[in-house]
């Protein structure tokens, strides 16, 4: 009888552990804890190329977005506030746009974006970059938080809540 009870207890504990481990790792993605891949390059709206290595030494929030993505447009005002508040303390938000460059230019003024927006000649190139960064379905908004040491801290498909974003950034600012 004791053996059966022990068996049941272990099964329940293992089931719970398996479930939580599954959900946790399913969300985490496989880039977290690894360095941001080298050699990723995009252009600014003037056509000047930028490598993501340029931002090493700062807490980098890469926020992939598009003008056709409602949740992205909803999230951007909070990012603008955070860049203003935490920029002097080492935060650098960068917004790679999965979009047509003219569509992006047309919306920049409305959005009041105060951080670099990067594009590629073809949106498909940006989609491939997102795949490389563990976003196989190409969903937007897509964010990666990268530490000052270049290690990816967090991967997120979908919006952050304002509180979560603020807490995450303030707890990882470079010292």
């Amino acid at each position: 009888m004791r053996t059966i009870l022990l068996f049941l207890f272990i099964c329940i504990v293992a089931a719970g552990g398996g479930f939580f481990a599954y959900r946790h790792f399913a969300h985490a993605g496989n880039v977290v804890g690894k360095p941001l891949p080298a050699g990723i390059q995009m252009n600014d709206l003037d056509g000047k190329p930028h490598a993501l290595e340029e931002y090493r030494g700062k807490l980098l929030l890469l926020n992939f977005w598009a003008t056709w993505c409602g949740p992205c447009l909803h999230e951007i005002p909070e990012l603008v506030k955070l860049q203003t508040e935490f920029g002097p303390r080492g935060l650098q938000i960068v917004g790679p746009a999965v979009d047509d460059p003219d569509a992006v230019r047309g919306m920049l003024g409305t959005l009041g974006i105060n951080y670099p927006v990067l594009i590629t000649a073809e949106p498909e190139t940006m989609i491939k970059t997102m795949e490389q960064l563990d976003n196989p379905v190409g969903g937007l908004p897509f964010s990666l938080l990268v530490g000052a040491d270049g290690i990816i801290i967090r991967r997120q498909i979908g919006e952050f809540s304002a509180g979560e974003l603020r807490e995450m950034i303030s707890s990882h600012l470079p010292t």
């Binding site: 068996f7 272990i10 099964c11 329940i12 293992a14 089931a15 398996g18 479930f19 599954y22 997120q156």
Partner: peptide
């Protein structure tokens, strides 16, 4: 038993959730 339980819990819960809203 523990191994089978953990696997079936993860898979079964996902199957249940598949009828609800997808998660990221």
């Amino acid at each position: 038993g523990a191994l089978l339980s953990s696997v079936s819990a993860a898979a079964g819960t996902d199957a249940l959730w598949s009828h609800k809203q997808p998660t990221a």
